[in-house]
Write a protein that binds this DNA or RNA. Sequence first.
DNA 1: CTTACCATGTAAGGCGTTACATGATTCA
DNA 2: TGAATCATGTAACGCCTTACATGGTAAG
Lengths: 181, 181
Amino acid sequence: MATEKKLDCVILGLLAHESLSGYEIKKRMDTTLKYFWTASYGSIYPTLGSLVTQGLATKKDGSINQRNKLIYTITQEGRLYLADWLRRDVKRDELHYETLLKLFFGGSIGKQQTLYHIQAFQNKITNELPYLYQSEKILEQIKNEEDAHLYYLLCVKFGIQTYEAYLSWCKEATHILATKG
Amino acid sequence: MATEKKLDCVILGLLAHESLSGYEIKKRMDTTLKYFWTASYGSIYPTLGSLVTQGLATKKDGSINQRNKLIYTITQEGRLYLADWLRRDVKRDELHYETLLKLFFGGSIGKQQTLYHIQAFQNKITNELPYLYQSEKILEQIKNEEDAHLYYLLCVKFGIQTYEAYLSWCKEATHILATKG
DNA sequence: CTTACCATGTAAGGCGTTACATGATTCA
DNA sequence: TGAATCATGTAACGCCTTACATGGTAAG
């Protein structure tokens, strides 16, 4: 069983588009990828090391003056490995929503506290939606320049649709609880 | 920092409603909770042991004939611990969607393979939606009997809204890719 | 009599986070 | 000169899954 190390694949996916340093990879994780994947330095750097050991990427020095910078580049083997993973069936999509968990056990804390959690969730989504709409707008304009833009646009559209559904649910749930006896 | 052992809280949340065995807890994980939380026996049994050690639950024998069965019951301390966690702000809602990841890197494998992943996702969602609608129907009828039913209903409604949004996105994404040059 | 389900648990190992440790550069 | 950002990495630890190990019961 070819151990499904997904972070390997995520990083290779980023490197397939352009060579990057660990720091830059982390930035992409925190911006474009954060909606469906996260990773910390404590997993990114060791994974990069292991990719080099496995021959799936190479490392070269890209330091400027005294400022450290190590640039990682995907190898041909790495591209094959990535393509193989991308072609395989999805094993599992996971949703770990603490908000839902607290809602599910809402009976133990009561209506007010549950309404508070829903409100916090709604605020978070409301704050993030404008960024998604902005990305959508930009990507619509450049989607034909590069394939990658189009696929990124599809992900953004996924985010918009689900976030809008969340907001619609927040309103419904709030109403149900508020009018409850 | 009060180590956020979430499985502790999930199990206590279930026990707050009724006393259960490890096997029964696993069943609830695989049915009602699976949409937003999962756990295996390898984590459930050790966690139950630790709950007893911490004084948050008690264990009693509920065997029938030679058939083993250990029933766990939440203690007063356990209820306080649970209530405390439920009242705290949600730390993080996590979505780890492999489908989205493969879509994001779709440029590396091309249109056909991406369409295939979207189709597989659509099939999965389409198959699961009827169960959610069925649960909704049943819960609408009994929601006033017990608070827990109402909160469960809200979770089911969340699932329905997001699943419908997923399906709507699948159609849009498929169309965009299918009509792409 | 065999399949499915009921029932509990352990061991090995993978994966990942948080906190720590260090140091350079840029900009106000 | 101090804050933010750029930049890499390790150590300790937590959490979880998979595979293994064992055995009873019910239904067809």
